[in-house]
Simulated scan of single mutants.
Amino acid sequence: MNCKKGDLAYVVKSDFPENIGAVVEVIEPDVDRSFQLGAFMWRVKTAGRPMHGKNLNTGKLRSDAMTGVAFDDCLRPITGWTPEPGVIDEVFDPVPLFGEPEFPFGKVQQ
Rank of each mutant, 00 (worst) to 15 (best):
F40C: 04
A65C: 13
P17H: 05
V23K: 12
V69L: 08
K45I: 02
D89S: 14
V11R: 01
I27D: 15
M66F: 11
M1F: 07
F92V: 13
F71G: 01
E100W: 11
L61V: 10
R62T: 02
P104V: 03
E90H: 10
I20Y: 04
F103Q: 06
I20A: 08
V26P: 02
F16Y: 14
F103N: 04
V44F: 09
N19Y: 02
G6Y: 09
G48A: 03
I88E: 15
D15G: 07
D93E: 15
G80W: 07
Y10D: 02
L61T: 08
F105D: 00
Q110D: 14
S14H: 01
A9P: 02
V23Q: 07
D93K: 10
N55W: 12
D15I: 01
P104G: 05
M51D: 00
E25A: 11
S34D: 12
V31W: 13
G68F: 04
G59Q: 11
E102V: 00
P29A: 09
K60W: 07
G80A: 09
L75E: 04
K4L: 08
P50A: 05
M66L: 14
G53Y: 03
V95G: 06
D30M: 06
D30F: 04
D32H: 07
K107F: 10
D32R: 06
V23P: 01
V95W: 14
D7K: 02
H52I: 02
V91G: 02
G48E: 06
M51V: 03
G86V: 06
E84Q: 12
S14F: 00
G38Y: 10
V87L: 14
L61M: 15
K107I: 09
G68I: 02
P96M: 08
P104W: 00
D72G: 07
L37R: 08
D73C: 05
V11Y: 00
D7S: 03
G106H: 00
M51C: 03
N55F: 10
V69I: 10
G68Q: 02
P83Q: 08
T79Y: 10
Y10R: 08
R62M: 11
D73I: 06
Y10C: 01
P17V: 07
S63G: 09
V91T: 08
K13F: 07
D32V: 09
P96N: 05
S63Q: 13
G86R: 03
N57K: 11
S63E: 15
G6P: 03
L56F: 15
E84K: 10
A70E: 01
I27E: 15
Q110K: 05
N19L: 06
D89T: 10
D30I: 00
S34M: 09
D7Q: 05
R76P: 00
P101L: 11
G48N: 04
E100G: 03
V87E: 15
E25D: 10
F92C: 08
K60E: 15
